[in-house]
Amino acid sequence: MSLPSTVRLERTTPRTARITFANPPANLVIPESVVTLLKIVKDLENDPDIQVVVFDSELPDFFVNHYDGAAAADLPQPEHEDDTPVWTDMVLRLSKAPFISVAAIRGRTRGAGNELALACDLRYASREKAFFGQPEVGIGIVPGGGGAERLPRSVGRDRALEAILTSVDYDADVAERWGWVTRTLPDAELDAFVDATVARLASFDRQALATAKAMVNRATLPPDADLVAAFGEFANTLTQPGFAARAVGLGALVAEKGLDVEYQLGEYVGLVNETL
């Protein structure tokens, strides 16, 4: 019997769809998530009726979290030398798709999850429950899915450097003030606001939406080659001794502290480095 997918697609109306993440207990991204998400995005970008796609989570404390380090060796690799890496292919397609992508962020979103959110066109976050981060450098690797390419375009060079180099978590108030998200809303109002925005966009002309998005893309998206290069740099750091030592330390903390490490990852990353 096959296990249920960590990524679920629901066609909510003829013009809208919802992609929901569910990988308890912390919504870590695993190889199955990456492969399934790419297939879903490919299918939706070729759907002539879809205008708006919402990304959300089944877990209230985690939107989409970082990649599961224990599954790093199983990360999907390009079949041929010139092929685009699977995760990179997915985020590139998502940012250029003819539909409008909306992230409804409630809970922690870090690493790959934050890179997915940054690839979405609109990001709406719970003011009380959303947290953001790029923790890679703190554990001896680098962002590989577009974080270093997209975040500076949203928050500026110095703020992106702070977020990526310090590997700390940022709350929704800071994220909104910096431009990391489109806007924050009280948690009780988030779903209604997203639903209203989706319904409004779905009522518009599809071609006008897609063309306007393409026009903004021309002015704002990083070159595809930069994201491809970033994945290669990320993959290389996975083989370095700096990552190996920190992975052992973080694993020991997980064994001791359990799920609290995922709730307070920014703090625990700092503790790992203090012991080296």
Rank of each mutant, 00 (worst) to 15 (best):
F63T: 07
F63W: 09
F63I: 10
F63P: 01
V64C: 02
V64Q: 06
N65V: 04
N65F: 09
N65M: 05
N65R: 03
H66C: 08
H66K: 10
H66P: 00
H66N: 08
Y67A: 00
Y67C: 00
Y67K: 00
D68K: 03
D68V: 11
D68L: 11
G69K: 01
G69P: 01
G69Q: 03
G69S: 00
G69N: 02
G69Y: 03
A70G: 12
A70P: 01
A70E: 04
A71M: 15
A71S: 13
A71G: 02
A71K: 15
A72R: 12
A72H: 13
A72I: 14
A72G: 04
A73S: 13
A73W: 15
A73E: 15
D74L: 11
D74N: 13
D74M: 11
D74Q: 15
D74E: 15
L75Q: 10
L75K: 08
L75D: 12
L75V: 09
L75A: 10
P76G: 03
Q77N: 06
Q77V: 07
Q77P: 02
P78M: 08
P78I: 12
P78Q: 11
P78T: 11
P78A: 08
E79S: 06
E79Q: 06
E79G: 02
H80F: 12
H80L: 11
H80A: 14
H80M: 09
H80Y: 11
H80I: 04
H80R: 13
H80K: 13
E81A: 15
E81C: 07
E81G: 08
D82H: 09
D82G: 01
D82W: 10
D82Y: 06
D82V: 08
D83V: 12
D83K: 05
D83R: 07
D83Q: 03
T84V: 14
T84R: 02
T84L: 03
T84F: 00
T84S: 03
P85S: 13
P85E: 07
P85H: 11
P85Y: 09
P85F: 09
P85V: 11
V86Q: 14
V86G: 14
W87S: 13
W87K: 07
W87E: 05
T88H: 04
T88K: 01
T88F: 01
D89V: 02
D89K: 07
M90I: 02
M90P: 04
M90V: 07
M90F: 04
M90E: 07
V91Y: 04
V91M: 09
V91Q: 08
V91K: 06
V91W: 02
V91R: 06
L92Q: 14
L92W: 06
L92S: 05
L92M: 13
R93H: 05
R93E: 05
R93Y: 00
R93P: 00
R93S: 08
R93D: 10
R93L: 10
R93G: 05
L94A: 12
L94S: 10
L94Y: 04
S95F: 00
S95Y: 01
S95H: 01
K96S: 10
K96Y: 03
K96D: 09
A97L: 02
